[in-house]
Amino acid sequence: MEKKVLIVFGTRPEAIKMAPVVKELKNIDSLNTAVCVTAQHREMLDQVLDFFKITPDYDLDLMKPNQTLNELSSRIFSKIDVVLNNFKPNLVLVHGDTTTSTIVALASFNRQIKVAHVEAGLRTYNKSAPFPEEINRQITGRITDYHFAPTKNAANNLINNENVNPKKVYITGNTVIDALFWGIKNINDKRLEISKLESKTDKTKKLILVTGHRRENFGKKFESFCNALLTISKRNDIQIIYPVHLNPRVQSPVTKILKNIENVLLIKPLDYEVFIWLMNKSYLIITDSGGIQEEAPSLKKPVLVTREVTERQEAVESNLVKLVGTNKKLIINETIKLLDSKEEYNKMISADNPYGDGKASKRIKNIINSL
C-alpha cells in the first residue's frame, strides 16, 4: 500500500528550512510526498519556493493584511482539514514554531494522523519570549509523534524536561544549514537585485547587516534598538544595511529614527538568495532572528542578538552569538568591541557551528524511510 507524506509550511523561514527536506523526500520512489503551503507569508514565501524550485501541490493562500493570530488560526484549521481529507496522508511534517505548524499539527491529531516535527525541542520556557513562538513549539511538541531535534540540548529538553519517549526523538542537525550550503552554491551573482545592491555597498567600510521584527520588542524597546544604530552610524568606518520588515510597527520607528542617515541604507526585505549573498558580504550582524543565529556561524560572522533570551542556547555557549537585548548602551559597546578588536572578533568566529553539517535533511529522509 502506498505511503503518503504531507509537508506543510507557511512562512519564509519554514520554507527555507523545509526545502532540503522536500527535495530529499521527493527522491523516495516508495513515498507519495505532497507539499502544502498556507501562505501565512505570501510574497516572501513565493521567493523561497522559486529559488529552491518547489511547486506546492496545495496552496491555501491565507495571507490577509492585518489579520490577528486567532483569525489566521481559524482559517488554517478549516482549509487544512480539506487537504487532509482529500490527500489522506500517513504522516504530516511541520516545522518549528509558527501558527501554521501548531494548527496543522492539531488538525492532523484530530484526524489521528501521525505528526513529525522538524526543528523540535527548542525552548526558552518563557511563554512571552519569543511570543507566540515559544507556546507554539510547546503545543506542537505535545502533539508530535516523531521529534527531529537539531541538537542534543533540544533533545534533552524533550526527554528530560517533558517526558517524551527517547525512542521518538532523533538528533538530526538543523536543515537551515543544508539550505544555506545549497543556497550559497546556487547564488546567481549576475542577478539584477544583487548587482544593484552591490553598487550601493561601500567596499571601503565594514558592513553591518541588521534585521529586526520580533513582536516582544515592539514599542520603546524597538526605539532603543534604533537609537543604538543611530549612534553606531556616526562612525565613518562602517556602513549599516537594514532590510526593513514590512510590519508597520517596525517600519514606523526605523523610518523615523534612521531615515536619511548617510551611511545607513534602509531597503525593502530581500529574497533568500540576495539575503544570504549580503550575509556573506557582511562584517558582523545585529539581529533578533532565530535562523540567522544558526546560519551566520557557518559563514564565520559574529552575531549580536537583540533579544533577552534565546531558544538557541548552543550558539551563546560557543560564544558564536551574544545576547544584547534592546539595551542601547550594550548594543553600542558590543558592536564597537567587534569593530575595534580583532581579538574579540576572532573569539566569536572560531568555534564550529553547533547546528549542523549540512546533512540534516538526509538523516530525516532516512528516518522517515525506516518508519
Rank of each mutant, 00 (worst) to 15 (best):
L6M: 13
G10W: 04
T11Y: 01
T11V: 05
R12V: 10
A15L: 08
K17T: 11
M18D: 08
A19F: 11
V21T: 15
V22I: 15
E24F: 07
E24K: 14
N32H: 14
Q40F: 08
Q40T: 13
E43I: 08
M44Y: 08
L45A: 01
D46L: 11
T55W: 02
Y58I: 03
Y58R: 04
D61K: 15
M63N: 08
N70P: 00
L72V: 09
S73K: 02
S78M: 14
I80K: 01
D81R: 13
V83Q: 00
N86C: 02
F87A: 06
K88M: 12
P89S: 11
P89T: 11
L93A: 12
T98P: 03
I103V: 15
V104F: 09
F109W: 11
R111I: 02
R111D: 07
Q112E: 13
V115N: 02
V115D: 03
A120F: 00
G121K: 00
N126Q: 13
P130F: 08
T144D: 03
Y146N: 02
K152C: 00
A154P: 00
A155L: 01
A155C: 04
A155W: 00
N156E: 14
N156Q: 13
L158D: 00
L158M: 07
I159L: 10
I159G: 04
N165S: 14
K167N: 15
V169W: 05
G173L: 03
F181H: 12
G183Y: 04
K185N: 15
I187V: 14
D189R: 10
K190Y: 08
I194D: 03
S195D: 05
K196D: 14
D202H: 10
K203D: 14
T204S: 15
L207N: 12
L209F: 14
F222H: 03
A228G: 05
A228Y: 02
I232Q: 02
S233P: 02
S233M: 04
Q239L: 09
Y242P: 00
P243D: 10
P243R: 06
L246E: 07
L246W: 06
N247G: 02
P253L: 10
K256C: 06
N260V: 10
N263W: 05
V264I: 15
L265G: 03
L266K: 10
I267G: 06
K268Q: 15
K268T: 14
Y272Q: 09
Y272I: 07
F275L: 15
F275P: 00
M279Q: 15
K281G: 11
S282I: 09
I285D: 02
I286E: 01
D288F: 04
Q293C: 09
E295Y: 06
A296K: 05
P297A: 11
K301G: 08
P302G: 04
P302F: 03
V309D: 09
V309P: 00
T310F: 07
E311M: 09
R312V: 11
V321E: 01
N327S: 13
N327I: 13
K328G: 01
K328L: 13
L338A: 09
K342L: 11
P354F: 03
Y355H: 07
G358L: 06
G358A: 09
I364S: 03
K365A: 08
I367Y: 09
I368M: 10
S370P: 01
